[in-house]
Simulated assay, not measured.
Amino acid sequence: MSKGDDTRQFLAEQSIAPLEKQKIADDKPHYLGHRERLRERFASAGHGALPDYELLELLLFRFVPRTDTKPIAKALLARFGTLAEVLGAPTGLLQEVKGVGPAVALDLKVIAAVTHRSLRSEVTGRESLSSWQQLLDYCRAAMAFESREQFRILFLDKKNMLIADEVQQTGTVDHTPVYPREVMKRALELSATAIILVHNHPSGDPTPSRADIDMTKEIVEAGKRLGITVHDHLIIGKKGHASMKGLLLI
């Protein structure tokens, strides 16, 4: 091979090398840089700097490591409405969203459980009537997005500290059977001196029904005979809550 041939081969190799590097760069998934920028924004400015879909997207990075999670995050919010409703949605419905498989749905429910447990720690061991907003936040996280009615009782001691939080009955989409005798029996078993009744309306509207009001009055009367105070009956819905005491219904 002549000296001229050597020179031409050298120049050809030098021109090919940058092209190969460019090809590798082009093959790199476009969302990787976006992920890093999003992490940096969260680290530097906190969650307030991110809209809901980006915060959800950031969470999904851990669950779906090799996929662009922005379309998934936006699809979840479009389907369910809010972050709270995404976390509160049943796993079956979550999996109806493209990109959400059983593992991702389960991971989202784990996050919901951690949130619920965290809120519960805010009301446990505290005087419930002085921590009312924390109590409402906890009940909302626990019940607002359930697909069936639940009847929950918060049992309090003489200092209004939370003794126990129990779901006594689970019903249908619009009815839960409640028996005042069973409510009082459980209160006596726990040595509770006061209770707060809570149930959810899966329809989203927290307005108490006639049946809700009548049932509450029966429990209030049963409690009076046994020295057990019913502080309130809260109805939790996706659109807010209603307090029967606040509405002067008890």
Rank of each mutant, 00 (worst) to 15 (best):
G246M: 08
K245P: 00
G33R: 04
S121K: 12
E221P: 00
T207N: 11
L87Q: 06
R126T: 11
S118A: 14
T115E: 14
S203E: 07
S128N: 11
F42K: 10
G99W: 05
F61W: 12
P18R: 04
M215E: 01
H231L: 13
I16Y: 00
K159A: 14
L106G: 09
A12F: 05
R148Q: 14
I16R: 07
H175S: 15
R181Q: 11
E166L: 15
R117D: 13
T69V: 15
S118T: 15
I24L: 12
A103T: 14
H199Q: 10
A84N: 12
Q133W: 10
K70C: 09
A73F: 05
R152G: 01
H47Y: 09
Y138V: 04
V173L: 08
A43V: 02
Y179E: 14
V110K: 11
E221Y: 03
A75G: 11
H116Y: 14
A112F: 10
F145N: 03
A112T: 03
D107R: 15
K98T: 14
L154F: 07
S121T: 15
L56F: 07
K158S: 15
V104Y: 01
H241V: 14
E166D: 13
P29Y: 03
N160E: 15
Q14K: 08
K21W: 01
E36C: 06
K158D: 14
P51F: 07
K70L: 15
V183T: 10
R186L: 13
T193W: 05
L162H: 04
V198G: 00
R79H: 15
A103C: 07
E96D: 15
R39H: 06
F155W: 10
H199R: 05
I235R: 01
L108M: 11
K217V: 05
I163D: 03
T82E: 14
H47R: 05
S131L: 06
T193R: 09
K28Q: 08
W132V: 12
A25F: 01
D26L: 07
V123S: 03
P65I: 13
D232N: 10
L93C: 04
K23I: 11
D205C: 06
G88E: 06
Q22E: 09
G171F: 08
L76I: 12
T69R: 11
